[in-house]
Each structure stands twice: as structure tokens, then as C-alpha cells.
């Protein structure tokens, strides 16, 4: 099959990738299945060569995105700035993850494919002053940017921002339930990488959450 006929098949997929989107089994099952195929990735790579792009994925191949093929200086500068943006949003994101885990009483941190029912979260938060305080704190962070007073409005604003950043997906715009995308797993891989890379002694913080609660 010639490259051009391939491209007409993968056009919409390439547009999403070029737009900087992360594609996983949750965001788009069909595109994700295509990206799992070596021949598809190779043909997209060939096509994107003049744009200095190639298809990349995280360690466990659960998320695909575009990376620079050759990393020149402008690319390095972009990556540096992008990482700074991610780092500035990291704490509110992590705080949100622990808050949801605690509110829902779940065994683990949210992971790709999990469903989040906003109303349930709101009800559990309203019933618990400590959770209310935590939501209030993280919602007012400039990453989430909520100036609302009510739990309901704060939770909605936070969810809206997470959808905008691709961490959550809202299958029906009229219904307040969300699906966690593979980008959360990508984020956690990045956190793990940073922990190892910067030799952050995370064991010291094992009980810091509990200590903050006590204070």
C-alpha cells in the first residue's frame, strides 16, 4: 500500500497526534488499536519525517503521542518549557488524586479506565469537613482556578480542567460521569521517573499526609 493511500486512512488519527493529543484505549479505542500495529506506526513515522515528528509511547505502551525525531535547539527549548508547565501543575494534580482516593475509599489511585461519578464525589465531600477543606484548597490552585464556594461548583471546575488537559474524558456532555484516560498513567510514570532521577527520598514522606491531617 502506498504511503499516500495509507494517509487518507489515517488522516484524522494523524491530525489528533499532530494537535499534541495523547491517544489511549479510553480516548479513542479505534485509533489506539491502529497505533498498536507496527506497520501503522512505521507508515505514520515515514509520513511525519519532514515535520520532525515520530510516534512515541510510554513504557507499557498504553499511551501514544508524538515526539521529536531529531532534538534540535528549538525542540529542546520547547521541551524545557513544557516540563516547567507540567511541574507547576504537578502538586495540584497529585493532591487531587489522593483526595479522590480518600473520598471514594478506594484501594488505589485512579487509573486509566476507572469511572468517576462526580455526584458521588460531591456527596462524600460535603459530608466530611476535612475533604471539603482539601477540595477547597486544590480547586483554588491556579491550575484549577476555581473561585467558587460550593463543593459542587468546585468539583465541576476541577473536572472541567482535567478534561481540558486530557486526564479525564466525559463520554456524555450532559452527564456528570468521567472516565480516566491513559494520560494519568503517563503522568505517574513521569513522577516515578523524576523521583528516580532526582533521588527524591520519598520514604521520608510516607506519613506526611497523616501528619498534615493531625496538624
Amino acid at each position: 500500500m502506498s504511503t499516500s493511500s495509507h494517509m487518507s486512512v489515517h488522516g484524522p488519527l494523524i491530525e489528533l497526534l499532530l494537535a499534541g493529543q495523547f491517544i489511549c484505549a479510553i480516548t479513542n479505542e479505534e485509533f489506539f488499536a491502529k497505533l498498536q500495529r507496527d506497520d501503522v506506526r512505521e507508515s505514520i513515522d515515514d509520513y511525519l519525517k519532514p515535520l520532525n515528528r515520530r510516534v512515541a509511547s510510554n513504557d507499557d505502551n498504553s499511551v501514544y503521542f508524538l515526539a521529536y525525531r531529531d532534538i534540535d535547539d528549538p525542540a529542546r527549548e520547547h521541551l524545557k518549557q513544557q516540563l516547567a508547565v507540567v511541574m507547576s501543575s504537578l502538586l495540584p494534580l497529585l493532591e487531587w488524586l489522593t483526595y479522590v482516593q480518600e473520598a471514594m475509599g478506594s484501594d488505589g489511585i485512579l487509573t486509566a479506565g476507572d469511572t468517576l461519578k462526580l455526584q458521588e464525589l460531591v456527596v462524600k465531600t460535603e459530608d466530611n469537613p476535612s475533604l471539603r477543606q482539601r477540595l477547597q484548597n486544590l480547586a483554588s490552585d491556579k491550575f484549577f482556578g476555581s473561585s467558587a464556594d460550593s463543593v459542587d461548583a468546585q468539583a465541576k471546575q476541577v473536572a472541567k480542567r482535567l478534561v481540558e488537559h486530557g486526564y479525564l474524558q466525559q463520554p456524555h456532555s450532559s452527564r456528570l460521569y468521567f472516565t480516566v484516560t491513559g494520560k494519568i498513567d503517563y503522568l505517574l510514570e513521569l513522577v516515578r521517573f523524576i523521583k528516580d532521577e532526582e533521588n527524591i527520598p520519598l520514604d521520608d514522606y510516607q506519613n506526611s499526609q497523616a501528619q498534615t491531617e493531625l496538624l
Partner: peptide, 24 residues
Amino acid sequence: RSLLVLNMAGFLREHPGFMVGDYS
């Protein structure tokens, strides 16, 4: 995963000026 998220959040709270290396 839980410990990673909890501990990294704790670390970032206590080190507000934390910067990662120049990976790029």
C-alpha cells in the same frame, strides 16, 4: 502507586521551589 503519589505530593508541599534537572 498510592505511596508514590502521596509521597511526591508531600515532598512537593515541603519543597515549593523544587526544580527538575535540564532533561531536555
